[in-house]
Amino acid sequence: MSRETATSDSVADRETASDDRSDGRIDRRTLASVRRVGLYAALLGLVAFYLVPVETGLVTSFKTSEAVRTTLPFLPPGPGGATIEKWQFAFGALSNGMVNSMLFTVPSTLLCAILGSMAAYGLTLVDWRGQVAVLALFIAGIFIPYQAVIIPLTEFWSVWVELDERLAFLWALPLLEEHHATILELIVTHTAYGIPICTILFRAQYQTMSWEMIEAARLDGASLWRVYRRIVLPLSVPMFAVVFIFQFTQVWNEFLFSLTIIRSVSDPAASVTLILSGLGEALEGVDFPLRMAGAFVSALPTLIVYVLFSDQFAEGVRV
């Protein structure tokens, strides 16, 4: 076996190999571009799928009742068919509910976040007996269905607590009215219901915190509370944004508690979701433009919250 034959063999091998490779390259390139076209088509399809309902709602909200009947739902109204009257009406009808919703959503969201963060601190970064049992209670709290609590809950507020009577001395004060008792009930209810999930969210972050850092702070002379206040709290700002957005949206959009605790659309404490449920319903038919305008108006605050906290949110979910 001479060395030369071996070499020429291997050269031939290499040539056929490179031929194969160039063929393969062309195939692969066409395949790649076909795939890319497919990908973009699918993405466009998805964009349309998600945006068309929103767009339909938006154009419908600007249509007159006449235009709704004569144009296709997703097409804009023709000249003369456009109006902002429905938006004005929706604002008028919902403004009181927006104020009420804001009055219970903001406090209960803040309370949930603060109490949840403290509970998570106590359950994660402080060592004590029986922690696991308490944590199990918190986790169980997440899974209690609303349906199971609405009757005991309404009984609790209306028969046992009767806040409006117990706090009667307050309603004489300026800015306070009797229906604020109902708002207070909603604040407490939403806070109690939101704490478990907020605690678990904070706990997930606190578990990644350096235990040595907490110990260093303790050795530096900080009390349990000071460690929370000066070390843990500042480091959980991004998680606060996550919890704030999440909880704000939950409470703002919540309907079942509003329905059972407030009971009536005509109640002065009626929330935005409660009013929205009846908006545009009439004997002569559904006023679609009004319902759409109302839906957009009531969704506005959650959008604003998203925009305000989006940077912090992004940092918080990166953890």
Binding site: S210, E212, M213, E215, A216, R218, L219, D220, S223, L235
Partner: peptide
Amino acid sequence: LPARDREIAMVFQSYALYPH
């Protein structure tokens, strides 16, 4: 005696500095 009342300072392997 709780750690914070012991007048003891400790340097940790991970340094444990306060990142914020």
